[in-house]
Design a protein around this nucleic acid. Structure first.
Lengths: 264, 264
DNA sequence: ACCTGAACACCGTTCAAGT
DNA sequence: ACCTGAACACCGTTCAAGT
């Protein structure tokens, strides 16, 4: 059950840390000081980190900030917009990550490695927010989660184009990379115990499994110890490495991937 | 704005089909006949398919069935349980898919191909439901979306064990396969235009992109035609094929995948 | 300029009462 | 046995009113 991630627990005992890095040095949660959009969004991230997404209501967020819910509408036009802002705030944390800089990296594979690990660190730092990052529709349909912002798409494509990818294969690589990140991180985060459903699973989790007749699933029962093992970190590395190798083949051959490539 | 009201195309042209295959021959939506859990869940799936997930409330689902909301609580203990039931009903459609049968397939690769395509068909048939399939926590943390049910996990593992996978590599394959399916299908479905947010994006979508200064992202602007191309189907095939080839290497070598495999 | 009180339309859910 | 009416505690959101 030990957490594999590097980088969680940034450098201090601030507890769950998280959004703190993107917030002003000013008092965070229910602290004083006048409100502004940034403080509202930061408080929302903290609130979701601690209480879960399902607990976030305008009224409770207001109370968390020491204010009536109606006051929030001065900084946020709607709850939906608030959630979009939360996603943006969390993704923005990546901008401050010194490990994820195109300039600082050695080649496109190194850059994609750093970027993937940066996104993973964010996902693990905000497991309750990540499903939102993963499922909120982005600005345009071709800007895909979890990168989500034009800035990262631009940076990604530039890195690949500079390294000899054709335009078509750079775009194909972007799609494959997005799918990989989304699938892996969404499952990893939910495995760590996000409670998307309200609190109806107070008794732990295995409720539904316990009431099922396990006798019909002997293989699952036998392999349960293996299935329960958390190998997320190693699996992430392995799948990422494999993807990068696959992309390198595409890059060398200078074209869009086609079926059956690796057979020739 | 048009209300779906009761009896949206009761039985005439099957419309989008979808859940119909798993429902009784009886009238589906707002038709008559006494309620039961199956009819309630089937109506919920139809409702979400037509109106979107955000529109589903107990009161509106009641109205869709020609009944007060309170009547639903005889068949469904809570809204959360209703959503779980919706997910289950949609996944259950896979059971009726004649293309997805272990017995009918030729080898484990063929089986995983059929299974993946079966899940993809369901995702595309119910794009508004699929995010729920993807993000609702399953019964146990090691039963992963989007397969979600012990029955499919059992079937998956059996197929691989019978084909010479070790227990550890069968489990690793299950994890890799789940991540792949989840990532690809979630992005494909959301690209097709799911509106998870309410209706605030009535003006199409590009609102946020239009208000952004695109001048800072020349590469994205230049590659926009490529980025907008929908290559989902081909990309799905290609990534699936690649995954299966990767698993074949693991199977032949009879061990859990490790980093750097394909290099040796 | 910034926040609040009161109000509106809507939720999920409970329960006594109807048929 | 199955459904409804009324009620409760809670939502998001608007707006006139307070300071």
């Amino acid at each position: 059950m030990s957490r594999p991630d590097q980088g969680a627990d940034p450098d201090s005992p601030e507890g769950r840390g998280g959004a703190a890095s993107v917030l002003p040095a000013a008092p965070a949660g229910g602290g004083r000081g006048s409100l502004d959009r940034r403080r509202v969004l930061g408080a929302a991230v903290e609130f979701i980190d601690h209480e879960g997404l399902h607990a976030l209501t305008m009224r409770r967020l207001g109370a968390y900030l020491g204010v009536e819910a109606m006051a929030l509408y001065r900084y946020v036009p709607s709850r939906e917009n608030l959630l979009d802002g939360v996603v943006e705030a969390v993704v923005d944390e990546l901008y401050g990550d010194p490990d994820v800089h195109l300039a600082a990296s050695h080649g496109w594979q190194d850059y994609l490695q750093r970027l993937a690990h940066g996104v993973r660190r964010i996902a693990l730092a905000h497991p309750e927010v990540f499903p939102l990052v993963a499922t909120r529709p982005p600005a345009a349909p071709w800007v895909r989660p979890p990168l989500r912002s034009l800035r990262w798409v631009e940076s990604f494509l530039d890195a690949l184009l500079d390294s000899g990818f054709t335009e078509a294969s750079a775009v194909a690589a972007y799609r494959a990379y997005s799918s990989f990140l989304l699938g892996h991180l969404l499952l990893e985060v939910s495995q760590k115990g996000v409670r998307i459903s309200p609190e109806d699973q107070a008794d732990g989790v295995p409720q539904a499994v316990a009431t099922t007749d396990l006798g019909e699933y002997p293989t699952v029962v036998r392999l349960e110890p293996l299935l329960s093992l958390d190998e997320s970190a190693a699996e992430f590395e392995e799948a990422l490495e494999n993807l990068l190798e696959r992309l390198e083949v595409v890059r060398r051959e200078g074209r869009t991937p086609r079926r059956g490539d690796s057979r020739s």
